[in-house]
Write a protein that binds this DNA or RNA. Structure first.
Lengths: 341, 341
DNA sequence: TTGTAGGCGTTATCAC
DNA sequence: GTGATAACGCCTACAA
């Protein structure tokens, strides 16, 4: 087999073969400027014969744009990121720009990787728990359109968030109404604007309780936000006196706790109530009480803002806050149908 | 606010500011060739003052490589794609290349979008149900390293697959052993190499049955492979005489059928048995019998093959087939613990 | 209607 | 040690 890596044909190869100049080839491809029919035919012939595909690099360099957008995730694990990307791609619609994605993933060189990405795209979505506001500002200053997602707004960038506070407060109130007093909040708020907001919302509900003195809140951190982290934290929690309810920062942590509970023959919700956040697909089947977050819509909204900003049709900077919704299922012990999980 | 989009600094801006030539700036950045300490200091100073980030376009054009890899998915919905991407990124490891992804999503211009992507990356992973083998071959001919995933191998490209056939046969045997005879296969095999293989495996099991005459297989197509498609198909199925078991092409279709069954008060598995494929997170909680596919490992393996191919350390072309595993839960009616879902 | 030539932002090969 | 300068692949005035 021939192992030379064939050098792709360039516009000059096509020009030579069609016996015209590169300018004419370019005109044929882009439909800019007039080209005589026979000339066009010759060029098209040469293009197909050489299987010519114009180099994105050359085009982008000349046009001064990439026709691609970037997204920076904290981690690619779990349904959250998938839904956001999906929403993004759907919204981009017909004029599809490819999506370039990276995860910072607790990796060190986050800043340089984001800056590298910034130099490959026409616009950037940056999620929470990835890089500091300083880095985002740095990118904004470079003139690149930026939309932040699920993090505190940064001056000069548009922002999309999901209403954490109100639903968290509703969740807290609901748990109180149903008699829960000894509460564990599971998940590391440090560095996660979303979780910080949620815990603040819960806090607000507790402070408005009729019997604030009876309430006992403990914060427990987990090593990440995936099922495995939840299971590990769950095992630790179940080893000592059980609280009334574990309020997990997201569904995956909650599902991990649920697994640990089942392994330990602890009944949910009778022995221990449990709630999550996000309403991922598994939550429905696990019977998990949670807060539904419009994940797909978050991605789509970010995409739309970005497109508008790139097109230059947006003035000032915009902040969209999408509504969330409390979803009561069996795991918090307040479901009409009752039953153990 | 200043709304001019600041033009990013170029290497020439830095050179001018540091009173050196662009060549020297380049040497400082890349550590190629000698630079006097004071000169280096001046250059570094100018770089930070101007917040200089070298243009990826310029670098790539000069280096002749992109430092990015591409992935072509049929659709970005569902856990499958997310796990594959995650596996990919994990395997890429320290030298992280950003991942550029597109979904063909039943969109028309699939070919041109893939060719565009091909001209942005150093290597490409192409999944099944995206573009024809001809298009893949076209890309291979252009000299780009290509790995196919979950599709028939294409000459010149490496290939990664998950053992569909053997597990499908095991699944078929299992269902037969437990008395199921009237079988519906749900999901469109046309255009999906994976599903085609699975159905062939099931077929093989049925043909080896002791009473082939008693077996009644019906193929039902769904409009896609997501939960919604499954629910719609489920409603249609439940409207007429129930088969013994619905074998769905993937978990999401199966979960959709399960939803439809619950809505119609049809008991699973007593009135209707049900199986899926993939073992997504929700499958565990839904009690779905399924076949576990090492989704993450599929992505990781593809990434490793691609890296090796790009590095040129691989001769010939390689085909990896990863093992799958039958996971028995309650939905097929053969679980020890029994119970309805 | 077509061709020439300069520019986009780097890198790397030569000279000096 | 450092600086011109020719690529890299394409686009687009400007000329002809």
């Amino acid at each position: 087999m021939d192992d030379r890596r064939a050098r792709p044909a360039t516009i000059y190869d096509v020009a030579r073969r069609a016996e015209v100049s590169s300018a004419t080839v370019s005109r044929v491809m882009r439909g800019t400027g007039p080209v005589a029919a026979p000339t066009r035919a010759k060029v098209l012939g040469a293009m197909t014969e050489l299987a010519f595909v114009p180099s994105r690099l050359g085009v982008s360099l000349a046009e001064g744009r990439h026709v691609a957008n970037g997204i920076v995730f904290p981690s690619l694990s779990g349904p959250y990121f998938a839904e956001v990307v999906l929403g993004y791609e759907e919204a981009a619609g017909a004029a599809q720009r490819p999506v370039i994605l990276i995860s910072t993933n607790g990796r060190t060189a986050a800043r340089s990787r984001v800056l590298d990405l910034a130099s490959r795209v026409d616009g950037l979505v940056v999620l929470g728990r990835t890089v500091t506001d300083e880095v985002v500002t740095e990118v904004v200053r470079s003139g690149l359109p930026v939309v932040t997602l699920a993090r505190r707004p940064v001056p000069g960038a548009d922002s999309v968030t999901a209403g954490n506070r109100a639903s968290a407060q509703a969740l807290g109130r609901h748990l109180l109404d149903h008699g829960h007093r000894r509460i564990v909040r599971l998940g590391d708020a440090a560095g996660s604007p979303d979780v910080t907001e949620r815990w603040a919302g819960v806090q607000a509900a507790l402070e408005a309780a009729p019997d604030p003195g009876a309430i006992d809140v403990t914060d427990v951190t987990a090593d990440g936000f995936d099922v495995e982290a939840g299971r590990a934290a769950g095992r630790r929690l179940l080893a000592s006196a059980l609280p009334d309810v574990v309020v997990a920062a997201n569904d995956e942590l909650a599902l991990g706790v649920l697994e640990a509970a089942q392994d330990a023959a602890v009944r949910v919700p009778d022995d221990l109530a449990l709630t999550g956040w996000d309403d991922v697909m598994a939550a429905r089947w696990a019977g998990l009480t949670t807060v539904r977050q419009p994940m797909r819509e978050l991605g789509a909204t970010a995409a739309r803002l970005l497109e508008a900003r790139i097109a230059g049709t947006l003035a000032g900077s915009r902040a969209e806050d999408l509504p969330t919704e409390l979803v009561i299922r069996a795991s918090c012990g307040c479901d009409d149908r009752g039953g153990q999980l």
